[in-house]
Design a protein around this nucleic acid. Structure first.
Lengths: 204, 204
DNA sequence: TGATTTACAAACATTCTTGTATGTATCTAA
DNA sequence: TTAGATACATACAAGAATGTTTGTAAATCA
């Protein structure tokens, strides 16, 4: 078997990504060798180096394949604010938790990201972008909170910056705990969890 | 320089741990080589292998040196419950955040742990213990919440298990966000953050 | 004071992984 | 139909890190 058709080549690429995703999740990124990925996909390292430059490029491809739904969801936040900013935030938080809980691929990739690793400088770039988008997210949340405060949805002494820190920590913590360890039904609990939290935010 | 006195040997051991802590934090655990640690401590790998079995043992020593204050603090939780379990929980949460914010060494070690890595099987054992103690912590919190519910400090329909999930996620998320990225004053914000959260828990 | 152990340094062997170079059979386009 | 590009497999070179072994001078102990 040597030269495949275009569709076959695309199939092996997908198989490589699937294998990498599973191995990254199971053994960790640094402990996963390119040969392991190739073997798991039923090919050799030749195929790996044909489709990808190195392990970092595989990693990015694996991540991008899963995280796009979350990013599009975050993008809708600003648009949906409307005349109930705090309610929109709560629905967003709940929705993201349920999105993560419902998508097996996203759970796997988040497990890889949360479990963490260090592969040297090649990966630093991607992780920096990750941090950047996280800061952006908190910034957007803060602006929505400002709008909520303007409408009297928050106690007057509430600092939007502090509240934004609290929200991201809570949602992020829930995601991390569930992804790494959770044996409970996150999608089921999400409404209660977000409800309690936002009730605390709104109470004077 | 060959044979040192006992105190000198203990000093090089400490220097090795200091160097490892800084390098683990800066470059990551997997990217830090034993030679880098030795050079940073002003010795050679011979000293490293004299004091430690391998990198995993260094890692454990680095972690244990910092995490003990947190564990002792968690141990006091059950004892301090008294007749205001929910209040004790809130004070505990706030205290842990301020403890982390005030101890530079703990922040460094937590940064290592939160940033994550994968060094293979040797480290799995330690990380498993870490997970175990985390579960224990959540379990204790849950029992305190049961006591709080018995005293009417929680709405009657509140599930202690769910609330425990929320608390650990919130506190853990705050710690993680601040350690990895935080440019804000966590010790200063901790009382507000915990106050808001527990207000939400208590409100019917 | 001598023997032995300690606390390392230095050199060595080995393994593991990556990257690259080359080979090659097939697909594709002109 | 044939010339070139494609999609890999295979073989090779090289470095890097680990673990181990050996050497050794000073500290400790008897």
């Amino acid at each position: 078997m040597v030269r495949r058709t275009k569709e076959q080549a695309e199939a092996t690429r997908t198989q490589l990504l699937d294998a990498a995703e599973a191995l990254f999740c199971d053994k960790g990124v640094a402990s996963t060798t390119l040969d392991m990925i190739a073997r798991a996909a039923g090919v050799t390292r030749g195929a790996v180096y044909w489709h990808f430059k190195n392990k970092a490029e595989i990693f990015e491809a694996v991540c991008d394949r899963a995280t796009s739904p979350m990013e599009t969801m975050l993008d809708t936040l600003a648009a949906e604010s409307g005349d109930d900013p705090l309610g929109a935030l709560e629905r967003q938080a709940c929705g993201i938790l349920q999105l993560v809980a419902g998508d097996a691929r996203m759970r796997a990739v988040l497990e890889i990201l949360f479990r963490g690793f260090d592969g040297g400088a090649e990966f630093a770039e991607y992780l920096a972008r990750e941090e950047e988008s996280k800061r952006n997210c908190r910034c957007e949340i803060e602006s929505v909170l400002v709008a909520a405060a303007a409408r009297g949805q928050l106690p007057p002494d509430t600092s939007p910056a502090k509240a934004a820190v609290a929200i991201t920590a809570f949602v992020g913590g829930l995601m991390r705990d569930w992804v790494l360890d959770g044996d409970y039904d996150l999608a089921d609990m999400a409404p209660y969890l977000t409800r309690v939290f936002f009730k605390g935010l709104a109470s004077a």
